[in-house]
């Protein structure tokens, strides 16, 4: 620009920069909005019971929705793989909720085994569920529903200290319990 000697030199340049920044921000935010809309449509579809695949770059909320879909259909191993891919650093609350739901699904499956009298698979499932509840609580110590259901699981299969625990680098939950109070289910009270 042919401006006078004392004029602020970069008015055109500043304007151009602002324009470029606003345009870039608009493009980015539109991409973001479109992605959110697509993700929410995916989450809605999974909630409605459609078996939709999620990509490698899916956001935690989508992974959680997919995992929940799998849990409700007793595909616990696939659900676990999905839950483990939710990063605790990026989405601690989503991961805690997903671990909690996974533990609930395991516990419900265990209760079905118990009803049919299959103690061993039930015990194994309950132990895994307890560990998942603990991991959810480690992410969010104020997660009351997880405390409640962990308490339920603990009464089904109690934790006990290892006997003669020498070099206990082992996780306590993987230790063999001395005793379980499985038959303590008060079914058909007198």
């Amino acid at each position: 620009m042919t401006t006078g000697p004392l004029r602020f030199p970069g008015r055109s340049a500043v304007l151009r920069l602002l324009l470029a920044a606003a345009a870039a921000l608009l493009v980015l935010s539109l991409v973001m909005v479109l992605r959110d809309v697509r993700d929410n449509r995916l989450i809605g579809g999974l909630a409605a019971g459609r078996d939709l695949a999620v990509g490698d770059t899916a956001v935690p909320e989508v992974r959680f929705a997919r995992a929940h879909f799998l849990m409700q259909r007793d595909r616990l191993d696939e659900a676990r793989a999905e839950v483990e891919r939710i990063s605790a650093a990026d989405a601690a609350a989503v991961r805690a909720a997903a671990l909690y739901d996974l533990a609930n699904a395991g516990l419900r499956a265990a209760l079905e085994h118990l009803e049919a009298g299959r103690i061993d698979p039930a015990t194994a499932l309950i132990r895994i569920a307890k560990d998942d509840y603990r991991r959810a609580l480690a992410l969010d110590p104020g997660f009351w529903d997880a405390k409640h259901n962990l308490d339920v699981a603990m009464r089904l299969v109690r934790d006990f200290p290892e006997v003669g625990s020498g070099e206990d680098e082992q996780r306590p939950d993987t230790a063999k319990p001395l005793w379980t109070d499985l038959p303590g289910l008060p079914r058909g009270l007198p």
Binding site: A65, N104, V152, R155
Partner: peptide, 27 residues
């Protein structure tokens, strides 16, 4: 009588789109 009472699942929630919406509206 269907086994011990369990607290219900946390339902999956939709993605929070406010940041994108605000940025789009602003720009």
């Amino acid at each position: 009588g269907g086994g011990p009472y369990l607290r219900p699942d946390v339902p999956p929630r939709p993605v929070d789109g406010t940041v994108g919406m605000l940025a789009a509206a602003g720009s």
